[in-house]
């Protein structure tokens, strides 16, 4: 008799537990779906909007670092937390890269304080350091290591495509400093016809759809 009773009790409680577990699984899975759904919606939407981006031609680059120096002079970032870097390999490959102002910016998605905004007018991803709490989540999320925490402030900063200069009619400092026009900019609709950022060991561009193309030499 007592055995029967115990089984009855457990059946009811097991059902209750099952319902709880089911709800928890639903809570766990639904947000994942939501995030993915949101991703597809924004990527479709951003494709329709204007998106400017960088173009880098490795064959034209003379490795002078003028792009990096002009950026550093203007924005005074700390040397080990750069906005733009000139990457070089032992084989002699070279790439000048900053933030790629991705069509699907992972940084903006994960930032809890909404320090990142993506401009409607040109797709520039601007990070507002004054809002940043320095949690470091965007540093993990960005596949290109574009955001860095500045040691002095404890806040993230990164390339903003010289949006203020662009708004006042001139171009970004890095592009202006490049003597060979290895680094240029343009509308991604046109640039993506010429190339992409599937370049020498860089991560799969499908993760964030970077607004940059690199033409290997």
């Amino acid at each position: 008799m007592s055995q029967n009773k115990r089984i009855n009790l457990s059946r009811r409680t097991v059902i209750k537990g099952g319902v709880l577990l089911g709800t928890a699984v639903a809570i766990g899975l639904n947000p994942m779906k939501l995030v993915q759904a949101e991703e597809t919606v924004t990527s479709v939407a951003t494709n329709a909007k204007k998106q400017i981006g960088f173009s880098y031609d490795e064959g034209k680059c003379i490795k002078c670092k003028a792009c990096v120096l002009a950026c550093q002079e203007t924005y005074k970032w700390e040397k080990d937390t750069p906005w733009r870097t000139l990457l070089r390999s032992k084989k002699g490959d070279v790439l000048s890269m900053s933030c790629n102002h991705c069509a699907d910016p992972a940084c903006a998605k994960v930032c809890p304080v909404k320090a990142y905004t993506k401009r409607e007018s040109d797709g520039i991803v601007i990070q507002d350091s004054s809002k940043c709490v320095g949690c470091g989540y965007c540093l993990y999320a960005c596949p290109y290591h574009a955001p860095h925490i500045q040691k002095k402030t404890g806040a993230v900063s990164k390339c903003h495509f010289c949006y203020e200069l662009q708004d006042s009619g001139s171009g970004p400092r890095c592009i202006g400093a490049c003597p060979t026009q290895a680094l240029t900019m343009g509308d991604m609709k046109e640039l993506s016809k010429i190339g992409n950022l599937d370049f020498k060991g860089l991560p799969n561009p499908n993760i964030t759809n970077p607004s940059m193309i690199a033409i290997p030499k």
């Binding site: 947000p31 995030v35 949101e38 903006a108 998605k109 994960v110 930032c111 809890p112 304080v113 909404k114 350091s129 809002k131 940043c132 709490v133 320095g134 949690c135 470091g136 989540y137 925490i149 402030t153 404890g154 806040a155 993230v156």
Partner: peptide, 27 residues
């Protein structure tokens, strides 16, 4: 573990803002 948030704790309240961030859901 925060950077600027440790120096300016009032910024932490903004961590409720971004509904696309899993960290915000966590908060």
């Amino acid at each position: 573990d925060l950077g600027q948030g440790l120096k300016k704790p009032w910024l932490i309240i903004n961590m409720f803002l971004n509904f696309s961030s899993v960290m915000t859901w966590g908060i």
